[in-house]
Amino acid sequence: MPTVQVNLYAGLRSYIGGKASVAVEVSPDQTVRELLAGLGIPPEHTRILFVNGRPATTNTPVSEGDQVGVFPAIGGG
């Protein structure tokens, strides 16, 4: 099965046992929403999404080799 790398940040790392990233198998036509659901992450706990460093939404499709970045609400400056 093709895989994507999902990088989780801040408090979201607790969903994958404190690790920073996880490889996830994906099927064709899968979106970020299904990816998060598979990891047990409620969408309302996420705020900032990237696929390959570009801004994404839960509707963005993912495919083999993609890097997905998932953050909660974050700010500073």
Partner: peptide, 17 residues
Amino acid sequence: QTLPTYGTNALANVINE
């Protein structure tokens, strides 16, 4: 939540990503 827990430097990974 995020600012008290992780501080302003929580941005490093976001901006890098």
